[in-house]
Nucleic acid binder design. Sequence first.
DNA 1: GTCTATACCTCGACCCACGAGGTATAGACA
DNA 2: TGTCTATACCTCGTGGGTCGAGGTATAGAC
Lengths: 108, 108
Amino acid sequence: MTSALMSGVSELLLLNLLAEREMYGYELARAIRTTTREAIAVGESVLYPTLHTLEQRGWLRAKRRVVAGRTRVYYSVTSAGKRRLALMNREWRRIADGVHAALGASHG
Amino acid sequence: MTSALMSGVSELLLLNLLAEREMYGYELARAIRTTTREAIAVGESVLYPTLHTLEQRGWLRAKRRVVAGRTRVYYSVTSAGKRRLALMNREWRRIADGVHAALGASHG
DNA sequence: GTCTATACCTCGACCCACGAGGTATAGACA
DNA sequence: TGTCTATACCTCGTGGGTCGAGGTATAGAC
């Protein structure tokens, strides 16, 4: 939530979580909060459209399952999705390192 | 350049540079490349509209100056701009730390 | 019977990045 | 004189992503 700095981060975090094991939407929302130590929360209006887009692009695979009367959509990462994750990881590193260098230089 | 992960980063880097000393557009573009160790380059189609927006919001002050036959627009940070920079710094920290925690947890 | 948590979803508004393109001057080099 | 590179400013259209608000429905607690 908050700020333009979130752009693209949702995709990175989702792919990263799903590379470990398949999960469903609501579960992912909670997992993002916990793995980022409450630093980042992805709202449902970001979560679901993002998952649909990633599926359409062939990076995620979806399986509907009914558990205790509720329908869940489980997502897993395809091999193309793994390549995408690797790319986003590198991109994130590059940008985070670049920003760190620039900010660090100013008060050092 | 490249990727949605750049969103908001331009503003942060610009405010950060201008907090040190006043600079003009073209100079800022070069400074961003060097201070980020070539990791980040902000194109002119991002740079100029961003500077105008920041000025309109009262975070930057602009002064036109003619140097060696060329017109330069020098920008400096207002006190509101300094508060904005402090906010963006905290936001960046929060998100970068959150992403780091999430990514670190997966391959640790 | 109502309230909370789970579980999915969409819509419209808005912000920002980006490539492509446009204008103009200074200085070098032929 | 002509051209090329660097400087220095700018806009426009497109598209991607976020976000708040809202909508539907079931399970379980109280």
